[in-house]
């Protein structure tokens, strides 16, 4: 378990990083926290020809509120996001989900942008971004590009990021009046989710009037499910719609039927909790 050979670059500015990435093409891989890429390299499942280490690029880890939008830099580490008062105030869904992300030492090093760019189907943060209606801001030598989270995640480990682009930050709209809900089911604490659900719901007068949700660990990628969201708002049994809508993954420890079942369990739990909170 040692990585295959690679070349290594450690840019200190964004421009430098983007230039290296553009020259490296498909064979270049950005290295953020490395908490997923490094194991994949150790197993030689990932074998980038060029690693572009982003850890010394200045200014990519800022967390700030600007114009009513919470901006979290791509290189912000999970532990920093988890502990940040602005995040707790403006996007309380994130700390709830981050508590479930792996373990403390992983959270000390892993980054928000790394997790989103990898798009592991079981990862919590992509589902959160979908539920938060976040915008993923990408940069390339040609400039910035903004992609809604719902369009960013495209499949198993597949995103809208082009190989010459880097994640700069996410932008999360303020959600005053919205209630967050997150839970996941995993065999052990910190494991990737067998199924997880992130929900943002706006509730008035004891009912849900607007909802956005994203599953993790269930399908190849998180996505909005308008019919389910509509059912939530209509006060209908949203969970019963899932079998017709979801295409759950299967694995040795978690067959597809089980993941679908868990998705329904989570959606019912979310519905109950949100109604109770409304």
């Amino acid at each position: 378990m040692t990585p295959a050979r690679f070349a290594y670059a450690r840019p200190t500015t964004l421009e430098e990083a983007l230039g290296i990435l553009a020259r490296g093409g498909e064979e270049a891989a950005p290295l953020a926290g490395g908490q997923s890429l490094m194991p994949m390299m150790a197993m030689r499942v990932a074998r980038p020809a060029l690693l572009v280490d982003l850890n010394r690029v200045a200014g990519l880890d800022a967390i700030a509120l600007e114009g009513g939008v919470l901006r979290i830099g791509a290189m912000a580490r999970h532990a920093a996001v988890l502990a940040h008062p602005l995040v707790a105030a403006e996007a309380p869904l994130l700390p709830r989900a981050l508590e479930e992300v792996a373990h403390p030492a992983i959270r000390n090093r892993g980054t928000l942008g790394g997790s989103l760019a990898l798009a592991d189907p079981a990862a919590e943060l992509p589902a959160c971004m979908v539920a938060l209606d976040a915008t993923i801001v990408l940069a390339s030598a040609g400039g910035e590009r903004r992609v809604p989270a719902a369009d960013f995640f495209q499949g198993l480990y597949a995103t809208a990021r082009r190989s010459d682009e880097l994640l700069l930050r996410v932008e999360i709209p303020r959600a005053a009046g919205w209630t967050p809900w997150f839970a996941e089911v995993a065999r052990r604490r910190g494991d990737y989710a067998l199924a997880g659900l992130a929900v943002m719901a706006r509730c008035t007068a004891g009912r849900i009037v607007e909802a956005r949700l994203g599953f993790c660990g269930v399908e190849a990628a998180p996505r909005r499910l308008p019919a389910v969201e509509a059912a939530l708002v209509a006060g209908e049994d949203a969970a019963s719609r899932l079998p017709a809508l979801l295409e759950p993954l299967g694995s040795a420890e978690a067959p597809a039927g089980y993941r679908l079942h868990l998705a329904q369990v989570l959606l019912r739990r979310a519905t109950e909790a949100l109604h109770a909170a409304a």
Binding site: R187, R188, G190, Y192
Partner: peptide
């Protein structure tokens, strides 16, 4: 509750080849 060396029923391939697949009890288990 957790530990299993699983093999694919068709191919006979070993499926529990990493510590993310072979589930060991941790302090919270």
């Amino acid at each position: 509750l957790l530990e299993a060396c699983r093999y694919d029923a068709e191919s006979g391939q070993f499926l529990s080849g990493t510590l993310a697949d072979y589930l060991l009890p941790m302090a919270t288990d």
